[in-house]
Simulated scan of single mutants.
Amino acid sequence: MSEAITRLPAISFLWPRMLWLLALVPVLALAYLWLDARRRRAAVHYPALKTVGFANRGVAGWRRHVSPVLILLALTALIVAISRPHALLVLPSRIETVMLVIDLSGSMRAKDVQPNRLRAAQQAAKGLLEAKPAGVSVGLVAMAGTSAVAQAPSRTKQDVATAIDRLQPQGGTALGNGLLIALTALRPEATEDAGRLMDGDASPLKKRGALGNPFGAAGLGQGASPGAGQGGGQNSADQEGAAAPGSYAAGAIVVFSDGESNAGPTAVQAAELAASYGVRVYTVGVGTTQGVVLSADGWSARVKLDEAVLKEVANTTGAEYFRLEDAARLKQVYRAINAKLTLGKTEQAEITALFAALGAVLAAGAALLSLWWFGRVM
Results as ranks from 00 to 15, higher is better:
V44D: 13
R376K: 15
S276F: 02
G264H: 03
T342L: 06
E350M: 14
L75R: 09
V27Q: 05
Q168H: 07
D326W: 04
T97H: 09
K126N: 13
L72I: 11
V98T: 14
K311Y: 01
S154Q: 08
Q114C: 01
P68Y: 12
V268Y: 02
V69W: 11
G241F: 07
V279Q: 08
G344V: 08
G264C: 08
L22A: 09
R376I: 02
A29I: 07
T191Q: 15
A252S: 12
P115G: 09
D297R: 11
Y334C: 06
T352F: 00
E130Y: 06
T76M: 12
W299L: 10
L140N: 00
I337P: 04
K157V: 10
V268S: 10
A174V: 11
T352S: 14
L273V: 07
G219D: 00
W299S: 13
A142I: 02
P188H: 08
W299I: 12
L88F: 03
W15I: 13
I102M: 08
Q123H: 14
T97S: 05
Q234P: 04
L362A: 13
V98A: 07
L73Y: 04
N116T: 04
G231F: 02
L183E: 04
W15D: 14
K345W: 00
N177D: 14
L362W: 11
R17Q: 15
R196L: 14
R166A: 15
L140C: 05
I253S: 05
T317A: 02
P47I: 03
V268L: 15
R64G: 01
T266H: 05
S370Y: 08
V284K: 01
G231I: 00
P133N: 10
M143Y: 01
R84W: 13
L22E: 04
T162I: 12
L73R: 09
L354G: 03
A194H: 09
T76C: 14
G135D: 07
A349N: 00
V281H: 09
L341F: 11
S107W: 01
R7S: 09
G212R: 01
V66Q: 03
R166V: 06
F322N: 09
I82N: 02
A301F: 00
E240N: 13
V80N: 01
